[in-house]
Design a protein around this nucleic acid. Structure first.
Length: 776
DNA sequence: ACTGCCCAGGTTTTT
DNA sequence: CCTGGGCAGT
């Protein structure tokens, strides 16, 4: 091989042509190809050009994906470092890594570009941070930081936060970012919808704040990278050349920003393989565009489409029920799942008087199955909304059935973990203002509103971080003695810990920090019921840090990974939402709460109409297809939602399941009158083949055409913001008369850089900072 | 600066 | 019903 593999300028065709025969040869004796069915094999071997693999539920998607990667590597089409493989979740990325490792050994190590969209975006953004007006050590904010920041922005703009909650602004901004919209690109109508037209303005202000804080949120990891690609063609070309092959998992879940990102990267080599299932797109409300997968062939003319329809998971009845249901959707590419399994049991449908009866019966069925030898961990209860879980938990606790809640509150999102992380962040990165704010007074140190306000004031005036401002302020008398001492103690502590970083294992340091800061003690003294659990979580946190080399590595990890490995492996019934069940499978699946209003959820219908209904239906499809052998659907005539009782009729989805795959268990259910739904306007649009007129497509088009003309990121603006006060301009002379907010009028008697000694008429001699003074 | 009270709002949540 | 957040009182 004469071509330098790392010469990114190498002509792709050359490499391709040369390795074709090698590919054919190794394919013949490649052990990893054995056992694939014809379609799977086709999907694995179609290496060149755009490929869309439509992988139905349980058709061996992950296997195809990993085998394809192995095949690329084994046939030497590309070096590990030349393959871009993106997933949505860390779990999927991890799993892919493991499985490739098992197939072809250590090469995985070289796959630096296998990861989640966000992890890869972060990696790229760190390499080119300056092009986005950031330093490469920028911090990644999580949802909580994001909202806190927006709250500040809203307050600063003098907008009533009661009427316009930060949470809602966050939803808007996330939505815009998902669609690849920078502040200037927000459609006027939508910008109008928040705070009487201040939406885009606040978005802009938020972005400026982020730049000043040297921070990004999740959306920026993609959006900023995308913008760099669009505004700096040389950077884009570098990556286009580097990535000889691209692989995308769960393509149906990509949003517009991700779609544009992928399309730009794939433009040159066109070796992109997207794997997904339009019928399992359930994250539309998070910005996923089913359209992306539906129009793949239009985007990549000449694309090869492979359908994986042979299902290895479920029985024919379960597949029949699921297929019949999903057939009611108009906006789909269409697949017919089949299996060679034995017929098996029909889907059992039961009706109950109320939610409690439903829970009781399901719990009894769980016990009965267990007596017949079924394992608890092979059973799952999948609910639409998490409030439904309570009834089941109550029941299980009552009967002593071990259960596990999957999903739920994330480890890193818990307050105590976020507090602990804020301490660690502040030690690693003293300029992290959000971390500083979070913990200066936690545990209570007597640093309240006033103290914080003063620190803020100086920080803003100087354009420095809160930590720096605090360090300066304690050498003066700006604060009253008590808070001043408290702040001095705090600053000193953080600096002491910081000095320990190089010489001490980071887990040990973490323990010291939690201990010396008084944080652990705070919870020990807390008498509430949650306190012991919180302390336990803190211990778990320190334990989980062991798997990282150092503090830096740990912090980078947690900013991108919101989960923690749970080693909860006992034989327990699984309880989770339908959303978190995607990608999982169980022998037995219980699907309670199939009532109009709950499932399909009323809000989904209200908000998104037919598109919402179709997404709910896909959710139902995901639910049914989780089951290998047994599937139970049920609904209750009465349900207590919040305080009041509501009666409900069976979900229309129940009627949509073909009768031949169903067995009605309890009585009173044939009465459902939900039979026919007129085809919607939306569906007709789609059926008429006007794919290009879909909103997503139009949006995408305007995006690509116009963003290149966008003015560069707000570098100048943020620079201005940082330098609002020019210290030189404020230099005072001895004897000068000055005014201080707190101390009143006085005369300068001594000058030490920024620090002045002033004889105040009323307050006496004080040491203060120049930025708190005004000339008289 | 902390504690208690009142009021609103409650679908899903990969990073 | 139940939780979380904002505000008023000591």
């Amino acid at each position: 091989m004469t071509t330098d593999p790392f010469d990114l300028g190498a002509i792709p065709e050359e490499t391709t042509a040369r390795s074709t025969s090698a590919a054919a040869i190794s394919a013949m004796r490649a052990p990893y190809l054995e056992g694939l069915n014809a379609e799977q094999r086709e999907a694995v071997e179609a290496l060149d050009g755009p490929v869309l693999v439509l992988a139905g539920a349980g058709t061996g998607k992950t296997r195809v994906l990993t085998t394809r990667l192995a095949h690329l590597l084994a046939t030497r089409r590309a070096y590990p470092s030349q393959i871009l493989a993106v997933t949505f979740t860390n779990k999927a990325a991890r799993e892919m890594k493991e499985r490739i490792g098992r197939l072809i050994g250590g090469v995985v190590e070289g796959m630096q570009w296998l990861g989640t969209f966000h992890a890869i975006g972060a990696k790229m953004l760190r390499r080119h941070a300056e092009l986005a007006g950031l330093r490469s050590d920028f911090t990644i904010l999580d949802a909580d930081d994001q909202v806190r920041l927006m709250k500040q922005i809203i307050q600063a703009a003098n907008i009533d936060e009661k009427r316009w909650p930060a949470r809602q602004l966050a939803t808007y901004i996330d939505g815009w970012k998902n669609r690849g919209l920078t502040p200037g690109k927000v459609p006027a109508g939508e910008a109008q919808s928040f705070a009487n037209g201040k939406g885009a303005e606040l978005y802009q202000a938020y972005q400026l704040r982020l730049k000043v804080l040297n921070a990004v949120d999740f959306g920026d990891l993609l959006l900023e990278t995308l913008r760099i690609f669009q505004e700096h063609p040389e950077v884009l070309v570098e990556y286009q050349d580097r990535f000889k092959y691209m692989l995308v998992d769960e393509y149906q879940d990509t949003n517009v920003a991700q779609y544009l990102w992928l399309r730009l990267l794939a433009q040159k080599n066109r070796n992109i393989c997207c794997v997904g299932d339009d019928d399992q797109s359930i994250y539309g409300w998070r910005g996923a565009e089913v359209d992306n997968i539906l129009r793949f062939e239009k985007d990549f003319p000449g694309a090869k489409v492979v359908r994986l329809e042979r299902n290895y998971r479920s029985t024919p009845h379960i597949l029949g029920a699921a297929s019949g249901l999903i057939a009611a959707n108009e906006a789909r590419l269409g697949k017919t799942l089949w299996t060679e399994e034995n017929e098996g049991e029909k889907v059992r449908i039961s009706s109950y008087w109320d939610g409690e009866e439903e829970a009781r019966n399901i719990a009894e069925e769980v016990e009965s199955l267990q007596r017949k030898g079924h394992m608890l961990h092979e059973m799952a209860i999948l609910v639409r909304a998490s409030f439904q879980m309570r009834e089941f938990e109550d029941r299980f606790i009552n009967l002593g059935i071990p259960y596990r809640v999957v999903g739920g509150p994330r480890f890193y999102e818990r307050a105590e973990i976020r507090d602990a992380n804020a301490y660690l962040r502040l030690v690693a990165q003293p300029d992290d203002n959000l971390a500083f704010e979070r913990i200066v007074n936690k545990p209570k140190r007597g640093l309240g509103e006033v103290a914080l306000q003063t620190i803020h004031q100086l920080a803003n005036a100087r354009g420095v971080s809160l930590m720096r401002a605090a360090r300066e302020i304690i050498t003066t008398e700006e604060l009253k003695p008590a808070p001043r001492r408290a702040l001095a103690g705090f600053v000193e502590m953080v600096e002491r810990w910081r000095a320990l970083v190089p010489g001490m294992p980071h887990t040990e340091l973490a323990e010291i920090i939690l201990d010396e800061s008084g944080y652990t003690e705070m919870w020990q003294n807390d008498k509430s019921a949650e306190a012991p659990g919180k302390l336990e979580n803190l211990k778990e946190l320190v334990r989980s840090m062991e798997q990282f080399d150092d503090l830096q590595g740990y912090l980078e990890h947690i900013s991108l990974v919101m989960e923690i490995e749970s080693q909860d492996t006992g034989d327990k019934v699984n309880l989770m939402t339908l959303h978190s069940a995607k990608g999982l499978e169980f022998d037995t699946v219980f699907l309670p709460g199939w009532e109009e209003g709950l499932f399909p959820h009323q809000r989904s219908l209200d908000q998104s109409g037919v598109a919402g209904l179709e997404e709910e239906r896909r959710l139902a499809y995901v639910g049914i297809t989780r089951a290998r052998k047994l599937s139970y659907i049920s609904f209750a005539a009465n349900r207590r939602i919040h305080a009041l009782w509501q009666s409900a009729i069976p979900s229309r989805f129940i009627d949509e399941i073909p009768k031949e795959h169903v067995e009605v268990a309890e009585s009173a259910m044939g009465a459902s009158s939900f039979q026919n739904y007129a085809p919607s306007r939306f569906s007709q649009d789609f059926a008429s083949g006007s794919d290009y007129s879909s909103p997503g497509w139009k949006r995408a088009q305007t995006m690509t055409r116009t963003t290149s003309k966008v003015r560069p990121p707000n570098l100048e603006v943020s620079a201005e913001l940082v330098a609002t006060s020019d210290p030189a301009a404020a230099s005072y002379r001895r004897g000068e008369r000055v005014f201080h907010q707190k101390f009143g009028y006085g005369e300068v008697t001594a000058i030490d850089g920024n620090k002045l000694t002033v004889d105040f008429d009323k307050a006496g001699r004080k040491k203060v900072i120049d930025s708190f003074l005004e000339r008289v």
